[in-house]
Design a binder for these strands. Structure first.
Lengths: 233, 233
DNA sequence: ATTACTAATCATCGAGTAG
DNA sequence: TCTACTCGATGATTAGTAA
């Protein structure tokens, strides 16, 4: 588990309390990930084994932390998780998945996308290129293959976030700061490559792949193609 | 989630506190499921974002609740989860899995075993037979096919425990009490059957199947055969 | 019925420190 | 070093009740 992932900073919110994840889990189990669910504070209290008053308080705290949204128009409130709330719960899920399904490799499904071409800019930086040669043993093509990850495969990204990988250090060049990243050996349709993730940024649903050559042309990939990449841990 | 699954009674322990599952999760992530891991109270405190003193206290509470075992012989303590502790964490995992991988069917792998022939005794009871005819629409063969479930498939059993299913009520006959159960439609190698689970008992690694005919002879199954059963929710 | 405020109670936590 | 005790401070929960 990442060192920052402690109560005081969990979910990047300043007000995240230890029991919030569990509360979110119960709302999620009622369908709060897909849409609003009718849930009185009394009902929530019963599910959590606490009083109506405490449950009401927790709802207020989750609202304050932007982890749920509420519709208080009708007699009975309706709640749903925010994207941030879903993300927090999915991260917790990733932890448990790591406990029981620790593997040497993860298969992640994604859709080929163009992105903003930002990857190429970063791949051209000398500060990165030298480290790639040193730590990965090759100098990658100056561009990345961007995969959009969705649905059940998102949890795999959360697992990667918590695995060490090969660390590429951040640096500064001409007054600009370039953040650190980590790499995992991977293969895409039999072609060896590396998955690369920023060290700090979370909340992403993208996975970038780098390789010796130009993956897109080598594999004849186009935007929208569905692929499965095998990432080794 | 089952109504009993609240803090006060979680894991059937009288002393289970809300943060115990999270503490167990961190120990599990370090390898505490497979064996002892060296873990000082200071280290645990850092992982949980609490002080060394509080972490020490949590270790004592987990020991008291029979959720971990400890080896305090060396300079640094070593801890591991008990079966009860693993079970508690796996149940939590099942909750999260249900949130993100809610499906209409679960595929569960198991090994055919003979068991003690107890299944047949229960299947002969009139109190059950009448309910099977009424609620499942057929009267099953007077015996069960017993599957031993292991490893990663155990979490599927925990998911079934939390799903409603078709409830078979308990009853008393000749002064003896017969507990309730719940059934899920299933198929084994293309043959329609039902999975049946006791309503109260937990901590099992067995799954019993009932069907119109004798599954074992119909499918040519022997003890030790590996099968996959598709259970519909 | 609801939600949620306030005040009192109760539990959790960490600093200091002993073994 | 380590674990873990005491105890005062902090934080969480609930009963009573308002709206």
């Amino acid at each position: 588990m990442s060192p920052e992932n402690v109560y005081g900073s969990r979910g990047h919110g300043r007000h995240t309390k230890p029991y919030h994840v569990d509360t979110l889990k119960h709302i999620a189990l009622l369908g709060g990930v897909k849409g609003y669910v009718s849930l009185s504070s009394k009902e929530l209290g019963e599910k959590l084994g606490i009083s109506q008053q405490s449950a009401s308080q927790r709802i207020l705290e989750l609202l304050e932390a932007d982890l749920i949204q509420r519709d208080l128009a009708a007699r009975k409130q309706r709640v749903r998780l925010t994207a941030k709330g879903v993300d927090l719960v999915r991260r917790e899920y990733a932890d448990y998945k790591r406990v029981f399904e620790a593997r040497e490799a993860l298969t992640i499904h994604g859709t080929v996308t163009s992105g903003l071409g930002e990857g190429a800019f970063y791949m051209k930086q000398r500060g990165y290129k030298e480290q790639f040669r040193e730590k990965l043993g090759f100098e990658p093509y100056e561009g990345t293959l961007n995969l959009k990850i969705g649905g059940e495969d998102l949890v795999a990204l959360n697992i990667l976030e918590e695995e060490p990988g090969v660390v590429i250090d951040g640096f500064t060049d001409s007054g600009r700061t370039f953040g650190g990243a980590k790499c995992f050996a991977a293969s895409l349709k039999g072609v060896e490559c590396h998955a690369i993730l920023p060290l700090r940024t979370h909340h992403t649903d993208n996975l970038e792949l780098i390789a010796r050559g130009h993956l897109r042309s080598k594999l004849g990939l186009r935007d929208g193609d569905e692929v499965a990449v095998e990432v080794r841990l």
